[in-house]
């Protein structure tokens, strides 16, 4: 709808203050990086990138200048003569980015831009994407299903559920103070405990919890529940411990690999402890 391929059934879309609801895609100052890039297979990288400027009937010297500049920026100058089929996944992604950015759109849409790449390349390109965004100063609107990617890339993060925005804000705020249990569960792992008053829940992230064998020492700033370990998953730098609390509710705790309790086994009964002040209260 933002790119103009679908019409909203109601409401308006404004771009830089102008109503563009009825504007067809080829007259909108918005460009898209498609999920599978949609690079034109019969054109070279250079001609792919030049497609937008030529559509706008810019003079050929100006086209050459703009295309050369943007290819420099995404570091593809050497590969300009190649066809998309001769590029690696990461290079294709950068070519698609250049093809969209060369038009200096008011906003750039990216539809799961990194989902087609293998995980190792993904984190490199996340950095690359941020660098290019900072250099161009163009707003990027990124759609992703990868929560970690969303947290890592965004300045503002919107969580959508069934077509409605549940929450919008800086990533830290969305993670630490979600507005609903849906957001809390969607972004990262969440432990939701009864709030005690029947109308609220307490959110605790797995890394805010710790395990100990003895009952709680008399520290008034902390709380604890007794729970039994059901599964331990080794994840490299950390361990994910799943437990059942005494009242039956599931809990998940993330431990540093070198934590004193890292040797915990499934079936053991332990105490799960947290700082009372760390819990975020959600009203149901």
């Amino acid at each position: 709808m933002i790119a103009g391929f679908e019409r909203p059934s109601q409401g308006t879309i404004r771009l830089e203050g102008v109503d563009v609801t009825a504007t067809p895609p080829h007259r909108r100052n918005v460009n898209t990086v498609f999920q599978h890039y949609a690079l034109f297979p019969h054109l070279s990288v250079w001609d792919n990138v030049a497609f937008g400027p030529r559509s706008r009937r810019l003079a050929e010297p100006e086209v050459r200048r703009q295309v050369g500049e943007i290819l420099e920026r995404v570091r593809l100058s050497e590969l300009a003569a190649r066809r998309p089929g001769q590029l690696s996944g990461g290079q294709q992604q950068r070519a698609a980015l250049a093809r969209a950015l060369v038009n200096q759109p008011a906003a750039l849409l990216l539809d799961e831009p990194l989902s087609a790449l293998d995980p190792g390349l993904r984190s490199t390109l996340q950095e690359e994407l941020k660098r290019i965004q900072r250099e161009c100063g163009i707003s990027f609107l990124i759609v992703t299903h990868d929560q970690e990617e969303a947290l890592a890339l965004s300045d503002r993060l919107a969580v959508m559920n069934a077509g409605r925005i549940e929450q919008i804000g800086p990533p830290r705020q969305v993670y630490d103070a979600p507005s609903s249990s849906f957001v809390a569960r969607f972004i990262g792992r969440a432990n939701l405990l009864a709030g005690g008053d029947g109308r609220s829940q307490l959110l605790l992230r797995p890394e805010q919890l710790r395990l100990q064998a003895d009952p709680l020492p008399s520290d008034p700033a902390e709380q604890a529940v007794r729970a039994r370990v059901t599964a331990v998953t080794f994840q490299g730098p950390s361990l994910l411990v799943e437990l059942d609390a005494a009242d039956g509710s599931p809990l998940v705790v993330r431990l540093n690999r070198w934590d004193a309790m890292a040797s915990v086994r499934s079936g053991e009964s332990l105490w799960v402890v947290w700082q009372t002040a760390a819990a975020h209260r959600l009203t149901v």
């Binding site: 460009n31 498609f34 297979p41 497609f51």
Partner: peptide, 23 residues
């Protein structure tokens, strides 16, 4: 044939006629 290429051409400002001819 990948029809999303047509959407990409329109997204880049190509008129329907140019999209047909070039893509």
């Amino acid at each position: 044939v990948d029809w999303s290429l047509e959407a990409a051409a329109q997204d880049l400002g190509a008129t329907p006629l140019r999209t047909f001819g070039q893509i």
